[in-house]
Structure formats: structure tokens, C-alpha cells
């Protein structure tokens, strides 16, 4: 494919441009509709609190979708992602105010895997409200 970053141009430790993604209630409603995940913990505060959550929380898959953008914005070609996995460790709590929450994502090249396949492993750090919300967040990416 056609990633704009070349394998030769990165080393273990190369940092990807970090990004912050805002998330408010409107965004969660849009994501629910687009993904088909209408679990009420993602839009109904009364229900979320009844099941023991502090407030409405973002879909884990929404957070996962935002986190990989740091990689796909970097390579330019989303088709360069060969593997991508996360562990959902903490919810992103989204209050019903004019600010909502934000997901802060940074990433770095953890290892160059295969010179022939031109693949590298990128480790992502995904935070919200000062806490890590995804664990083991890793992607294997094929570079140019």
C-alpha cells in the first residue's frame, strides 16, 4: 500500500504526532447510530447510574477508533494497519455539560519488526481525565 512514512526513516523510539480527541454526548449519539451499539450506558445517565457507573461513558470501540487515528494520520493510509489491539481498562466518563471529555493519544515506534515486510510495532498511550483508559494498545503497521 502507500504509507507516506518510510521504514528506513523510523527507529525504535520514534514518536508519532500526539492528538487530543474531544467527546461529548452528541458524539456518542452519532457513534451509537453509526455503529449500531445502542447500549443505554452510552446515552442514558439514569440507566448508567443504575448499573453503578458515575455517568454516561463512551463506547470502548469509540475510544479504540479514535486512538488508531494517531497511526492512520501518521501513515496517511489506513490500509497500512496490519494488526490493532487494545484492552479496555477504564471507562471514558462523558458529563452532560458544554465541555464533555477528551481522549489524549500519543504513540511511538516500539520495535522494527521485519525489514522485508516493512512492518513496525507502534505502542499507543490513551488517556482521559489523567488516567489511562486503554491498556496493551498496540498496532502493527506496514510502512513504505
Amino acid at each position: 500500500m502507500a504509507a507516506k512514512i518510510a521504514y528506513e526513516d523510523v527507529e525504535a523510539g520514534t514518536e508519532l504526532p500526539a492528538c487530543t480527541f474531544p467527546v461529548d454526548r452528541e458524539r456518542l449519539v452519532r457513534y451509537a447510530g453509526a455503529s449500531g451499539d445502542f447500549n443505554p450506558i452510552h446515552w442514558n445517565e439514569r440507566f448508567a447510574k443504575e448499573v453503578g457507573l458515575p455517568d454516561v461513558i463512551a463506547h470502548g470501540m469509540f475510544t479504540m477508533a479514535e486512538a488508531i487515528r494517531v497511526v492512520t494520520d501518521w501513515t496517511g493510509d489506513p490500509g497500512a494497519v496490519v494488526e490493532y489491539g487494545v484492552r479496555f481498562t477504564r471507562p471514558v466518563v462523558v458529563p452532560d455539560d458544554d465541555k464533555g471529555a477528551s481522549v489524549e493519544v500519543s504513540g511511538k515506534v516500539a520495535a522494527k519488526l521485519d525489514g522485508e515486510a516493512r512492518t513496525v510495532r507502534v505502542d499507543l498511550t490513551v488517556m482521559s481525565a489523567g488516567q489511562k483508559v486503554l491498556g496493551m494498545s498496540r498496532a502493527v503497521v506496514r510502512l513504505a
Binding site: 453509526a34 469509540f62 479504540m64 477508533a65 492512520t72 496517511g76 489506513p78
Partner: peptide, 30 residues
């Protein structure tokens, strides 16, 4: 793509996707 706020043209513009070597627009990884 709009729901996750991602404006990468590979998701919406066939010519942009083709320029990356894909036969048609592609979907975000998740």
C-alpha cells in the same frame, strides 16, 4: 467516519483511495 470525526479522504473519496492503491473507498480499521 463522520461519527468518529475522521476526515481521512481514503474513507470518502474514491480517487484518494485509489491513489493509495485501493480499488475503492476503504473503511476505518474498527
Amino acid at each position: 467516519a463522520e461519527a468518529i470525526g475522521d476526515t481521512n479522504p481514503a474513507y470518502t473519496d474514491r480517487a484518494a483511495a485509489e491513489a493509495l492503491g485501493h480499488p475503492d473507498v476503504i473503511a476505518p480499521p474498527t
